[in-house]
């Protein structure tokens, strides 16, 4: 982690460069250092400019918009309404349902992708015939365009003609409204998402797995550990830092995922998959209410910032614990 070098470095190491500078400080050095510093700023300037233009300004505009009643067909003509948008958003069920949908979707997707991705990585990390083929097959969904995945899943989920219900029909089980039944909508969307995204986890975990020394597996075998114990006692601790990062990425990506949900259910059935992002889209473009959409967006930003902070705190604690030993 990058912050380890900021505050996690032992004091001795941190002070070393400072001492090295002291005797060398002279007039020439000072101006040279100043030039060096300016050069440093010059190097980061394009990145900063990019962030300011494409991130900071729109972000501030968005927050400003959340205090107006701007409409889609007149985006700049909103009148200030104070905190009315926040009051109405926070008192309406729609926002809380949407937050719940986001939490459910994120939790299920993260759990699903991490478990499935790790299992797949462990599987293809073993040596067997056709491993290369299986690896590419398993990585395939990640390479597919999301829109294509969503359309194919929508077709398979179709209530009367979809592959799933036809399969169930053959087994003599009645059909399910995968995307139309409020009890199933979320599960169906999560399943499609997990299928699409788990290869990412698989590839990252696979890379981490390949850095486990083969001798560790052999040592565990000599020590009489079975496969499950080998995994839990030796492999999993090794993967833990990777899994934490992957889980963070998956969480952030799940909170902001749009296309697959929008294309499968558009937020339905009965708003069960109306995550914050879909909610923002619908409020902004279908309801044409930019002010309220900006409000929901700002609240969503608070939520994702909170989640990220919690993750970083956990990560920092784990790192400190590791270093203490």
């Amino acid at each position: 982690m990058s912050y380890r070098t900021v505050d996690g470095a032992p004091p001795g190491r941190a002070s070393a460069p400072r001492e090295a500078h002291r005797p060398a400080r002279g007039r020439g050095t000072r101006s040279r250092r100043r030039a060096g510093r300016l050069l440093g700023y010059a190097f980061i300037a394009p990145a900063v400019l990019y962030l300011v233009v494409f991130l900071v300004v729109p972000l501030l505009q968005g927050i400003a918009m959340s205090f107006t009643d701007a409409k889609l067909i007149n985006p700049t003509g909103g009148d200030p309404v104070g905190v009315d948008n926040y009051a109405s958003t926070l008192t309406a069920d729609r926002f809380w349902n949407s937050l719940l949908a986001t939490v459910l979707y994120t939790t299920a997707t993260v759990a699903g992708t991490v478990v499935l991705g790790t299992a797949a990585a462990v599987l293809v990390n073993r040596a067997f015939r056709g491993r290369a083929l299986l690896r590419s097959l398993l990585a395939f969904p990640y390479a597919m365009p999301t829109v294509a995945v969503a359309l194919v899943f929508a077709w398979m989920y179709n209530q009367s003609n979809g592959a799933f219900n036809r399969g169930l029909g053959i087994l003599g089980i009645g059909e399910t409204g995968w995307l139309t039944d409020p009890d199933w909508g979320m599960a169906s969307v999560v399943a499609a998402t997990v299928w699409k995204v788990f290869p990412f986890v698989m590839l990252v975990v696979l890379a981490a797995l390949q850095s486990v020394s083969a001798e560790l597996y052999e040592a565990a075998r000599i020590d009489g550990a079975d496969a499950l114990n080998t995994f839990r006692s030796i492999v999993l601790p090794h993967l833990a830092p990777t899994l934490r990062i992957v889980a963070l990425l998956m969480t952030i990506w799940s909170i902001r995922r749009f296309e697959i949900i929008f294309l499968l259910t558009g937020g339905g059935p009965v708003e069960t998959t109306n995550t914050l992002v879909i909610n923002v889209y619908r409020t902004a473009f279908s309801d044409q209410n930019l002010g309220v959409a900006a409000t929901v967006g700002a609240l969503g930003l608070v939520v994702s910032l909170a989640v990220t902070c919690v993750f970083l705190l956990v990560e920092r604690r784990e790192t400190k614990r590791e270093e203490a030993l």
């Binding site: 001798e215 052999e218 040592a219 075998r221 000599i222 009489g224 601790p237 030993l325």
Partner: peptide
């Protein structure tokens, strides 16, 4: 026979200590 059934101990060149255990 599996390694554990042979009543053997094995010391590896790299020691193969479990890094996450004390």
């Amino acid at each position: 026979l599996e390694p554990k059934e042979r009543e053997i101990a094995f010391v590896f060149q790299s020691y193969a200590l479990y890094p996450h255990m004390t």
